[in-house]
């Protein structure tokens, strides 16, 4: 973290689907208040929101750490969920392992990771099966 940046840490509750997205909402409001361009604010909000939803539906929650510097927004999403066996396959639009009850909630269309990639400038995924997943997102300002 740079000294002239803002630092946020959130615990993402895996038990509460209704509250998923509150961390992204906080970041969105912060970026808005900082006066960043609406497109940047929205890209960040969507990428992080998809990540948050992923942690709730696949991994039983996790943590989100966000650093806002003068040049970029960096988001680290970390969970101790089941991990992703085949990242390349998981990145494919339309591919999802989400169960039917998640689809009933409007998610699990297999767009989450590809949306995160689409709306960020850099995305890195590290994952180990039955250990967890760490996703790094960077959105340039």
């Amino acid at each position: 973290m740079q000294s002239d940046g803002l630092h946020f840490e959130f615990a993402v509750d895996g038990e509460n689907f209704a509250s998923a997205g509150t961390a992204s909402e906080t970041i969105k409001n912060t970026l808005k208040k900082l006066g960043l361009p609406p497109a940047t604010v929205r890209r960040t909000a969507i990428a992080m929101y998809e990540g948050e939803i992923n942690m709730v539906i696949h991994a039983g929650g996790g943590t989100a750490v966000v650093d806002i510097t003068p040049t970029a927004i960096e988001i680290e999403l970390k969970d101790e969920g089941p991990g992703i066996a085949d990242i390349e396959l998981a990145m494919r639009e339309g591919y999802s392992t989400a169960p039917e009850e998640i689809r009933m909630l409007g998610f699990g269309a297999g767009m989450g990771l590809s949306n995160m990639k689409k709306y960020s400038d850099e995305m890195k995924i590290e994952s180990e099966v039955s250990k967890g997943t760490r996703v790094l997102l960077k959105i340039n300002i």
Binding site: A18, S19, I46, A109, G110, M111, K118, Y119
Partner: peptide
């Protein structure tokens, strides 16, 4: 009815028509 699809197609849509009811909408 799929929120991920809504999130995939960003532009300036101001109205969301859906049959899905939960806070994530």
């Amino acid at each position: 009815d799929m929120m991920s699809d809504v999130l995939a197609f960003v532009k300036e849509q101001a109205v969301l028509i859906t049959g899905l009811v939960n806070p994530q909408v």
